[in-house]
């Protein structure tokens, strides 16, 4: 895949030369304290914690897209497959978290794919509470879903993202499912001719 390789090169280049770094453990611990605070605030109602994480991610995503665009200097993606390569796999996650989740499991209509996280800095050194519920109800890294949704919405793509498995729940892989709902193109002229 030429576009995939190009994206990978861009990602590596940006990561090496354009990105100010920070100690990874500070980020991991900070995310931990955010989740812990939510668990306290919502009295361990994990469904609400998931929602709140998604909401926080959405707020982040809508702003984070500017950082991504300003630093990577890339153009608009031609199609959703390019988007998956570019934003999720090679450049997006790469320049923020220095990881490259695998893009896979495309549906035939090219509107749905999975991201497989081999590494997940947010969940490093994490164990969910042994309360008989957390492993069934909490999606610890749910902030990612909101970030993707918020970021893509700003570039006229309406998507849905959700985790379907997580090593923290005892699954063997951490997998997020991403579905393209529609292109919004809110600023474009009407499409009806």
């Amino acid at each position: 895949m030429a576009s995939g390789q190009k994206a990978a090169r861009v990602g590596e280049e940006v990561w090496k030369t354009r990105v100010d770094k920070v100690n990874a453990e500070l980020v991991t611990l900070t995310y931990g304290t955010v989740v812990a605070q939510l668990c306290t605030d919502y009295e361990y109602d994990y469904v609400q914690v998931n929602q709140q994480l998604d909401k926080m991610g959405y707020n982040i995503g809508m702003r984070l897209i500017e950082d991504f665009l300003a630093k990577s200097n890339i153009g608009r993606c031609g199609n959703f497959r390019d988007t998956a390569e570019m934003i999720s796999k090679k450049v997006g996650f790469k320049i923020f978290l220095n990881i490259t989740p695998t893009v896979t499991n495309w549906t035939a209509d090219n509107k749905q794919f999975s991201l497989l996280f081999d590494e997940n800095p947010l969940a490093d050194f994490v164990e969910l509470p042994d309360d008989g519920r957390a492993q069934d109800e909490l999606w610890f890294s749910n902030i990612f879903c909101g970030i993707l949704r918020g970021a893509l919405e700003m570039v006229q793509m309406s998507i849905e993202a959700r985790f379907v498995s997580d090593v923290l729940r005892g699954n063997d892989v951490t997998e997020m499912r991403v579905t393209l709902l529609r292109y919004t193109e809110d600023e474009m002229p009407p499409d009806d001719e």
Binding site: V19, A24, E25, T30, D67, N98, P121, F125
Partner: peptide, 17 residues
């Protein structure tokens, strides 16, 4: 993760929120 690094933006956005 002793010497692992992430982008400063990842901290900045997390802390912002």
């Amino acid at each position: 993760s002793r010497n692992a690094e992430l982008s400063r933006s990842s901290f900045a956005y997390l802390f912002m929120e």
